[in-house]
Write a protein that binds this DNA or RNA. Structure first.
Length: 454
RNA sequence: GGCUGAAUGGCAGAGUGGUUAUGCACCGGUUUGCAAAACCGUGGAGGUCGGUUCAAUUCCGGCUUCAGCCUCCA
C-alpha cells in the first residue's frame, strides 16, 4: 500500500483514489520567461517518478502540469528583450521541453497554458464574487477576501493574526485586508489584456492554477504537488479559491518537494545562485543529473555541487558496468528484489533506499556473471526493469560508458593489443597512459580490452 | 518576531528502540604483465545537555546551529 506524506495533515497516509484505480495529479509548472534551473529539474524528475511509480502499481494516472505564460515577469522580460510575449514564451516552453526530455521526464498528459483558460478563469472569479469571497477594488482589480474563508491558513499552518504581525507586504489602500490577493489585474497601458466583466485586464497567478486544475481534473482530485515555496501563499490561495468557488474539498494529498541548494542556501532566481539545466548538461550526462536528484529523499534539501555530481556519475557507472556485456533476460522469477523495491517506494517514495537495492542487484550480477551467466542475464533484466520505474538505466551500457565511438581509440587499442602480444609492456602502458590523458580508461579482461570515459 | 523542517562515519545519504544501509573515498587480500573493473574482507557515525528504558543514533524535553516560509519563487 502506497503511503504519501501529506503536507496538509503533516502525516503519511495511504493513497485512496477518488475514482478506483485512477489517480489525478496536478503539479505547478513553470513560469516561462527563462531557462529551467536545477530546482525546476527536481520538480520535474520527482513528480515524474511519482507518476511512473503510480503507473507501475497499475493506476491509470491523469497527470496535469500547467505552464504560466502570462505574468509580470514575462511582460517585463519581453519588454527588456524587445520581444513579442508569445515569441518569448514559445521559446522558453520549447527550451523546457528540451530539458525535461533530456532528463527522461515523461511529458505530462496535459500541459495547459494560462492564456488558453481565460474564460474559465473569469467564470471562476465571477463565482467567487457571487459567493462573497471576492470584491472589486477602487482601481479596478478583483481581490480575494481571505477573511471570508474560514479555513485560510490550514495548509501552511498559519493564522491570520500571525500573518498580520509579521507581514512584509506593502500596504495597498485599495485592499480590505493587506493579505488579500489579486484575482484579476486591471490592464495597464501597453500590457496584454483580455476583456472581462471588470474591464480589460489579466488573471492573477493563483487563480490560474485553481481554474486549470479544476477544469482539467474536476473540483476534487487526488494529488496536488509543487515546490515547498509554493505552500504559502500559492497553494493556500488555491485552496481558498477552489473551495470558495465549488464548496467541495479541493485536494486529498498535497505533496511538496524540498529545495535544491547551493552551499546550503536555496537555489533561486532572486538570489542569483542558480545553474540552468543546460549548463549542467554541458558537463554531465542528463542521466547523471537525474540520478543525483534521486539520491536524496524528495522532501529533503538537495545540495548541489560538482563533487556530488561526480559521485552520482561514479555510482551510475557502477550500475551500467554491471549491465555491460549481458543479454537482458526478462524471465527472472524470484520477486524478492521487486518486493523490497515496492516496500521502500510505498514508504513515501524513498528513492535513496531504493537505489541501494539497485546496487544489491548489481552486486549479485557481478557475482553471477562468472559462474552463472543465465542468472546474470536475468538479474540484469530485473535491474533494468526496476531502474525503469525511476527512469534510470534504460540506455545501452556502452552508450553511457563510452558515448560516441571514436576511431582513434579503436586504432590505439589495436596497436596496444599487438604490443601486449609481443609483451612490449612499456609500449602498452604508454598507449594506456596516452588514452588516460584524454579521459579514456582501459580495462583488460579475458575477452580483450574495453574502455570507458572517465 | 511567528510558523515549519533539519542536525548521521572523510563526503553524499537512508532506515532502525538491541542485529551490515547504500554509493564514493580509505585499508588488507584475490585477480592482472602492471593497472582498471570485479570479487572477498577490515576499519570508521549519528550536534549538545537531560529524561524514559534492561537497552536510544532511533522516543520525549531543553539548548545550540543551520535551512525554509511569512514578498516573486519549483
Amino acid at each position: 500500500m502506497l503511503n504519501i506524506y501529506n503536507s496538509l495533515t503533516k502525516k503519511k497516509q495511504p493513497i485512496i483514489p477518488i475514482k478506483p484505480n485512477e489517480v489525478s495529479i496536478y503539479v505547478c509548472g513553470m513560469t516561462v520567461y527563462d531557462y529551467c534551473h536545477v530546482g525546476h529539474a527536481r520538480v520535474m524528475v520527482v513528480f515524474d517518478v511519482v507518476v511512473r511509480y503510480l503507473r507501475y502499481l497499475g493506476y491509470k494516472v491523469n497527470y496535469v502540469s500547467n505552464i504560466t505564460d502570462i505574468d509580470d515577469k514575462i511582460i517585463q522580460r519581453a519588454n527588456e528583450n524587445e520581444e513579442d510575449i508569445n515569441e518569448l514564451t514559445t521559446r522558453f516552453i520549447q527550451a523546457m521541453h528540451e530539458d525535461s526530455d533530456a532528463l527522461g521526464v515523461l511529458r505530462p498528459d496535459n500541459q495547459p497554458k494560462a492564456t488558453e483558460f481565460i474564460p474559465e478563469i473569469i467564470a471562476m472569479i465571477e463565482g467567487l464574487i457571487n459567493n462573497k469571497h471576492a470584491y472589486v477594488t477602487d482601481n479596478g482589480d478583483v481581490c480575494y477576501s481571505i477573511q471570508s474563508f474560514a479555513d485560510y491558513g490550514k495548509l501552511s499552518g498559519k493564522n491570520l493574526a500571525e500573518l498580520r504581525s509579521g507581514e512584509r507586504v506593502d500596504v495597498d489602500e485599495s485592499k480590505q485586508n493587506s493579505l488579500d490577493f489579486v484575482l484579476w489585474k486591471a490592464a495597464k497601458p501597453n500590457e496584454p489584456s483580455w476583456d472581462s466583466p471588470w474591464g480589460a485586464g489579466r488573471p492573477g497567478w493563483h487563480i490560474e492554477c485553481s481554474a486549470m486544475s479544476t477544469v482539467c481534473l474536476g473540483n476534487h482530485f487526488d494529488i496536488h504537488g509543487g515546490g515547498m515555496d509554493l505552500q504559502f501563499p500559492h497553494h493556500e490561495n488555491e485552496i481558498a479559491q477552489s473551495e470558495g468557488t465549488t464548496g467541495e474539498k479541493f485536494v486529498n494529498i498535497w505533496m511538496h518537494n524540498g529545495f535544491v541548494r547551493i552551499n546550503d542556501e536555496k537555489m533561486s532566481k532572486s538570489l542569483g545562485n542558480f545553474f540552468t539545466v543546460k549548463e549542467v548538461l554541458d558537463k554531465y550526462q542528463p542521466e547523471v543529473l537525474r540520478y543525483f536528484i534521486l539520491t536524496s529523499h524528495y522532501r529533503s534539501p538537495l545540495n548541489y555541487s560538482d563533487a556530488d555530481l561526480d559521485a552520482a556519475k561514479q555510482a551510475l557507472t557502477r550500475l551500467y558496468t554491471a549491465l555491460r556485456g549481458l543479454s537482458i533476460d526478462d524471465s527472472y522469477a524470484n520477486d524478492a528484489y521487486k518486493q523490497h523495491f515496492q516496500t521502500v517506494m510505498d514508504d513515501d517514495f524513498n528513492t535513496p533506499e531504493v537505489l541501494a537495492i539497485l546496487f544489491e542487484l548489481s552486486h549479485a550480477i557481478n557475482k553471477a556473471r562468472t559462474n552463472d551467466l543465465p542468472l546474470a542475464n536475468q538479474l540484469a533484466g530485473e535491474l533494468k526493469r526496476l531502474g525503469n520505474i525511476l527512469g534510470l538505466l534504460q540506455a545501452e551500457p556502452e552508450e553511457f560508458l563510452q558515448g560516441k565511438k571514436q576511431d582513434f581509440i579503436e586504432q590505439l587499442l589495436l596497436e596496444r593489443q599487438s604490443a601486449r602480444q609481443r609483451k612490449d609492456w612499456a609500449e602498452a602502458d604508454r598507449i594506456r597512459d596516452e588514452l588516460e590523458k584524454q579521459g579514456i580508461v582501459l580495462e583488460d579482461n579475458a575477452q580483450g580490452t574495453t574502455w570507458r570515459k572517465i
